[in-house]
């Protein structure tokens, strides 16, 4: 599918470019903008980013694949990121993770059939003191138990 930045996003990119002495350093913020517009970073989006920033497509691909937060395939409307690292693990992180897997019947990296939820087992999110946690897209839900996980998933389903 063709990808072109919207007028509004081109303006955002112009603002971003002011932060740096050259164009290339803007690649991460510009990829974020592309991901927000497109839902994920497609090959076409990478080509467009490369052309806007005068980089090679290979260089852009190299950046995309290095960072876990750039998605090369679509994620759910609600991207669930469950931390299972040590501080969360000690307070039930794996119970939460397994529960979500079973409840939504998807594995790590999976997407529900209705495209509503995707799941990712993530590394420490900086919520160790309020563990266990799930991030839903950009929002952190902390101090969780299974009951709260149920409530979160229900309320997200209700919204649709």
């Amino acid at each position: 599918m063709e990808f072109k930045f919207t007028e509004e996003n081109l303006k955002k990119i112009e603002e971003v470019l002011k932060k740096y002495p050259e164009k290339k350093p803007a690649v991460m913020p510009v990829l974020y903008i592309a991901q927000e517009q497109n839902g994920f970073i497609s090959g076409e989006a990478m080509a467009e980013v490369a052309s806007v920033l005068e980089m090679t497509k290979e260089d852009v691909l190299g950046v995309v694949t290095f960072y876990t937060m750039f998605h090369q395939k679509p994620v759910g409307k609600y991207h669930l990121q469950v931390c299972t690292n040590v501080s969360c693990m000690l307070r039930g992180g794996y119970r939460i993770y397994d529960y979500v897997r079973e409840k939504l019947k998807i594995e790590n990296g999976g997407l529900t059939e209705d495209n509503l939820f995707s799941l990712e087992e993530v590394e420490c999110m900086g919520s160790c003191g309020t563990a266990p946690m799930i991030a839903v897209n950009e929002d952190f839900y902390e101090n969780l138990d299974l009951e709260k996980v149920d409530q979160i998933l229900e309320s997200l389903k209700q919204k649709n």
């Binding site: 932060k19 740096y20 991460m28 974020y32 876990t68 937060m69 750039f70 590394e123």
Partner: peptide
């Protein structure tokens, strides 16, 4: 200026 990372320890 803020530079936002993208998930790489």
């Amino acid at each position: 200026y803020v530079h936002k990372g993208a998930g790489a320890y």
